[in-house]
Structures are given as structure tokens and as C-alpha cells.
Design a protein around this nucleic acid. Structure first.
Length: 123
DNA sequence: TCAGTGACTGGTC
DNA sequence: CGACCAGCCACTG
């Protein structure tokens, strides 16, 4: 068995990564897909997140789903109706959004290796 | 089994 | 920067 067993599927893998995102930081769908071992499966990651709403937070209490945004640095939940909610949650954590609704990915995007190396954010 | 769909991404115009 | 197109994987009817 490989270190990252995919018995639970991409879903559990993505949720585990999302749960590790520190406050004030964000990750992209494609990034999660790559870290989950399936580069290019960004769409699937979005599907997993959408599944969170269906199953309810009971399955993953406290899961910081709001820290998952698209590669453009914008939230993909505007069309869903709770884009303002996600932006509000992120802003409460210190994430600043542009007038276009974009945030600085280069500064806010988080990678697990940062935690491993103990690298501090530049700010 | 096939076709449609989606909280995506990258390239081209 | 916005609009369009093709590739991508899992789920639904």
C-alpha cells in the first residue's frame, strides 16, 4: 500500500487537506487535486465540496471549506448564492479581496510543505 | 452503456 | 481583462 491510500477515494483525501489549511490561507481546487494525487481533477474537487453541503457539516464539523478557492484567486460560489458568505468568512481571517473579488494568491496560497519546513508567511 | 453536468484549469482570441 | 474552447474526472439519469 502506498503512503496515501486511496481506499476512501479522492473525497477523504481532499477533506483531509482542507482541514489542514491554516486560518488566513487558501488553496485552489487544482492544487488540492494535485496534492490528492490526481492532477487535473480540479472539477472533481469542486464536486466533493458541493457534496459537503448535501451531506451536511455533521460529516466534517469545522471544515474550513471557505479556504478553498479557484486558481483565479476568486471564490467559485458566487453562482451558488453564498459567495458573499465565503468572502465574509475569509475576510474575517484577514484575507483581503480586490474590487474584482480577487485575493493575492501569491501571498495567501498555502502549501503543506510550508508547515513541514516551518516557513513563515511573507506578509 | 451513453450522454449530460459541474464550488475547475489553461490556452487562445 | 473578458469570452470561448477543449481537457479533465466522478456522479446522475
Amino acid at each position: 500500500m502506498n503512503a496515501a491510500s486511496s481506499e476512501e477515494g479522492l473525497r477523504a483525501r481532499v477533506l483531509a487537506l482542507v482541514a489542514q489549511i491554516p486560518p488566513g490561507r487558501v488553496m485552489t481546487y487544482g492544487q488540492l487535486a494535485t496534492l490528492a494525487g490526481q492532477p487535473g481533477a480540479a472539477r472533481q474537487v469542486g464536486y466533493v465540496m458541493n457534496g459537503l453541503m448535501d451531506t451536511g457539516s455533521a460529516h466534517s464539523p469545522g471544515l474550513p471549506w471557505q479556504r478553498v478557492i479557484n486558481a483565479q484567486g476568486k471564490v467559485s460560489t458566487d453562482k451558488l448564492g453564498f459567495g458573499d458568505l465565503q468572502r465574509g468568512l475569509l475576510r474575517a481571517e484577514g484575507v483581503e479581496f480586490d474590487a474584482s473579488g480577487k485575493c493575492d494568491l501569491g501571498r495567501l496560497q498555502w502549501w503543506p510543505e510550508e508547515a513541514a519546513t516551518g516557513q513563515e508567511r511573507l506578509l
